[in-house]
């Protein structure tokens, strides 16, 4: 079994972002970076599949500047077999442009399963994996919260509003991973040492035409400070009054 996982390097979100002087991006000074949440779930799910089978390889792919190699190295230290860095100094907010580059790399790679995160937590588009699946004309399942692969077939669960759907599909296939399948392991010291010797290939990304561009980025309006209304049931009449007269939500 040969699995590819596409992972994106994104900032950790536990900060107050600032807007860069250009007004079109966030200021990256002082940000910490990691692989996007759902991509971590996908890497873990891929590793568990290979471990269960006892054979196979997990190839991790990331498009971005040289720093993208950090998350690739992390995935290698978790246990991935080898890494491909698609070098691009700009990472556009255009899912189709990125998907074009990823599809070009994946095509002809002989993968049984190609995995993505459901969405990258910086761009929050949730489109790239599906577009790659369509570009490669492979069966595609978006947002799997359960996934089972056996005998050349897959089955998955997708969460809906107030329900779910059970999906079956043949391999090779493209899947994007939701929460609920696997939490990423921490790289062990042994894993980190081993990762240093694993192959990391770097080549220029073949981005598609960029048709979605950023006009501006801004911080949303600050919320007014909160207020403590009271304690226990005694606070309820005042709360209801405020919800009716001030917030006007009742």
């Amino acid at each position: 079994m040969k699995i590819a996982v596409c992972i994106k390097r994104v900032p950790e979100m536990d900060v107050k972002f600032r807007i860069a002087a250009s007004g079109k991006a966030v200021d990256e000074t002082g940000l910490k970076w990691d692989m996007s949440d759902f991509d971590g779930y996908a890497v873990e799910a891929a590793l568990q599949m290979i471990e269960k089978l006892g054979t196979g390889e997990v190839v991790v792919i990331s498009l971005g500047p040289d720093t993208a190699q950090e998350v690739l190295r992390k995935a290698l230290s978790m246990g991935a077999t080898r890494a491909v860095h698609l070098k691009s100094d700009q990472v556009p907010f255009d899912s189709a442009a990125i998907a074009t580059a990823l599809a070009a790399e994946l095509k002809g790679g002989g993968y049984d399963l190609i995995m993505f995160g459901k969405m990258a937590i910086d761009s929050a588009s949730g489109a790239t994996g599906v577009i790659v699946g369509e570009m490669l004309d492979l069966p595609t399942v978006h947002g799997c919260s359960k996934l089972e692969i056996a005998n050349g077939k897959g089955s998955a669960r997708r969460e809906l509003e107030g329900g779910a759907e059970e999906v079956t599909f043949p391999l090779p296939a493209v899947v994007t991973i939701d929460e609920g399948i696997a939490r990423p392991r921490y790289p062990s010291l042994k894993g980190i040492m081993a990762a240093k010797k694993k192959p990391m290939e770097s080549k220029a990304a073949q981005l598609g035409a960029v048709r979605v561009t950023v006009d501006a980025m801004a911080l949303p309006a600050e919320r007014a400070a909160g207020r403590i209304i009271g304690e226990g049931a005694a606070a309820v009449p005042e709360l209801v009054r405020l919800l009716q007269t001030e917030a006007k939500v009742l």
């Binding site: 900032p11 979100m13 937590i121 929050a124 950023v214 980025m217 801004a218 949303p220």
Partner: peptide, 17 residues
């Protein structure tokens, strides 16, 4: 489009082919 977990609002422009 809210990006960075809603901490930033992006104004995006799509120029179709």
């Amino acid at each position: 489009h809210p990006v960075y977990t809603g901490k930033v609002l992006a104004t995006l422009r799509l120029t179709p082919g």
